[in-house]
Design a protein around this nucleic acid. Structure first.
Lengths: 377, 377
DNA sequence: CTGAAAGCGCTTACAG
DNA sequence: CTGAAAGCGCTTACAG
């Protein structure tokens, strides 16, 4: 037996304060029990490779010595597998987590992945410290949510040749893409307004610089594949009805002050209906309309997108295009999982949407019943 | 030069389909450039250790060969540092992410950590696959959010001797705990009801099995340190006013059907006021009261806890105890960060709360103005 | 400014 | 059922 005098060798040079106990490794236990390191390894990782009795003896010794199990970092290197999946969000987690839709997606992905034994690591954009998580974090694969192909994190991931699933992204060769059918959803939303009789319609978007302008070919250029899909759908329905909408947009990826300002400008001479790229943007429009005394839906119909949990709670309840965010998260997780299993069957997927008509839309100029009609007796 | 014939050695046995390119490592590049592996390592990790010229040459070669940088798993083992911090939530991420307060916390932590160059990995409870993330994932430390000390994940973390910060947890020797001052917040909430003149008060909690019972000593036993703190505060204020509240609770950690059922039972013979352990629970009470035609706040005052984003949006707007969730997240992240820097100065912290009085509380039996008083003309 | 040596802690075939 | 050997890909002192 090579076991040193004491059962647990202590760290620190003689005379120094011994702050912690020396690292207990497979070797410590092997020497203690009198077997080879790899038998100890087997005791933990391949129980069928040794006798029940030996295994118990080893596990007992491990516990006595305070061994918490094989070191995950060493194991990851040896196995070539970490058990971790990365998630890169449009914006840093700090921003993304203010959006219920993004949160719902992360939630669903984390759940599906957990069922398969994988943990999710949130990959923020590269910081000042020179740390680029997408490049520097050990992981087995990644899910990229609603990012432009040019995103730095995305590029880093691809350089590493990691299995990647793109969600609501631009089609990229060799990268499966999961997303909803934005065009069809948007088409339904616009058609709903057309059916109600609206002709003066504004479209409110992000990732597109447009200050109450008309949709000239050039202007419809957006960095977001999601917005692009929705634009397609809206324009198709409106085009069929010979309606030329007004475009209100910001170059930013989400709602910012530029967009708010342009929405205000739009409300100076309001259309009769607005198609917004998200429920959050729709609420922004509704709040600003309300502040000016413009009645929704009597004077202004508003349609959102997503069916954010808020949509049903606000007043008037928001007409919107529902997407099944849980299904999207599951689909993304499953796609990545099958990529990890090297089942090449993984392909892109378009999930369906559904128009949900609530109280924020009505016929133009309708003396529609709002929730506060008592004064009209 | 030991460089093989072609610039990029291919993998796969002769005759097999060559699916991928052989792994490019430090060695590949070293041989290609004609320097040692460690000079290549230095080019990436310690730029000051070699001439600018050599470095450029190495980096160029690396790019040509498709080398994405030092392998994170190998680096983690060699450096003893992963750049990853774990987060264990009360419930699995799937459940936790339905709660805006928990989401806000994760958001704040992820943000603070990102600033310091760390990424956050969500640690789910151990699954069927035998995978226990808290034991099997490589990380440098962890934040434990609102977990009972007996939580399996917590125990696994401690066995690994990882730096841990406890958030809203039970005090544990050697583990700094960050949390709000639950007792004081709850005290203020209860005192507010006392000041309004209420005497028939119910307390709605989780993690405590109580079916409209009186708070006997035994019954006040809860597995949640957070609930325990709030109970203390409520009971102290009520005790000073000689009020004995009714206890409505579920053994579960959150809101479940048991709790809903017991709330219904409470409303059969309603008190004049309710103290709820969270805003979500308060909304549950309000909705159920509304369904029965019990007016809030005229017939029933309701006080929540947290100041969930929803609290201000619902109608009537909810009186509640505000906690600064961003501050809590930052504090937790900073505490862990300083633990990682081995600044032993890290200690526990109690963050302040503030009572926010809105429209869901009024004097008992008050013919208070609700939002629908028109009928009373 | 550059390199030879040792090591991080584990696992994977392969023998016996 | 058990072990000796090689290796995962990098970094950390330490020489020169």
């Amino acid at each position: 037996m090579l076991t040193p005098a004491g059962p647990i060798p202590l760290s620190g040079t003689m005379g120094e304060e011994v702050v912690g106990v020396a690292r207990v490794t497979l070797k410590t236990i092997a020497e203690h029990v009198g077997v080879s390191r790899m038998t100890v390894s087997n005791a933990f990782s391949r129980p069928d490779q040794l006798s029940e009795d030996l295994r118990t003896r080893i596990l007992t010794a491990a516990e006595e010595l305070g061994y918490a199990g094989p070191d995950p970092a060493a194991r990851a290197l040896a196995r070539g597998r970490t058990g971790v999946i990365g998630m890169v969000l449009t914006n840093s987690p700090r921003d993304a987590f203010t959006d219920d839709v993004a949160v719902g997606f992360v939630r669903a992905v984390a759940g599906s992945l957990a069922d398969a034994g994988y943990s999710l690591v949130l990959l923020h954009a590269s910081g000042k410290n020179g740390v680029v998580p997408a490049r520097d974090i050990a992981m087995d694969g990644a899910i990229v949510y609603s990012c432009a192909p040019a995103t730095a994190a995305f590029a880093a991931l691809r350089e590493r040749h990691l299995p990647i699933v793109n969600v609501e992204g631009a089609p990229l060769p060799g990268v499966p893409d999961i997303g909803i059918d934005n065009a069809t959803g948007a088409y339904q939303a616009a058609q709903h307004l057309v059916d109600l009789g609206h002709t003066r319609i504004a479209i409110v978007v992000s990732a597109l610089d447009a200050d109450n302008s008309s949709p000239s070919e050039a202007a419809v250029d957006t960095a977001s594949p999601t917005i692009a899909g929705r634009m397609d759908g809206w324009m198709r329905a409106l085009g069929q009805a010979d309606i030329v909408p007004t475009l209100v947009g910001t170059p930013a990826l989400g709602i910012d002050d530029i967009l708010r300002e342009r929405i205000d400008r739009m409300l100076d001479d309001p259309p009769t209906a607005v198609l917004a790229f998200s429920d959050l943007a729709a609420l922004e429009v509704m709040e600003r309309a309300k502040a000016r005394g413009i009645l929704v839906p009597e004077q202004l119909s508003v349609v959102g997108f997503d069916d954010n949990p808020l949509a049903a709670r606000v007043s008037p309840a928001l007409t919107t295009v529902r997407q099944d965010i849980d299904a999207k998260g599951d689909a993304a997780a499953q796609a990545l999982l099958s990529l990890l299993r090297e089942e090449e069957a993984t392909s892109s997927q378009r999930l369906p949407t559904a128009l949900v008509i609530r109280a924020s839309t009505a016929q133009p100029g309708a003396a529609g019943r709002s929730e506060k009609t008592s004064s009209r007796t």
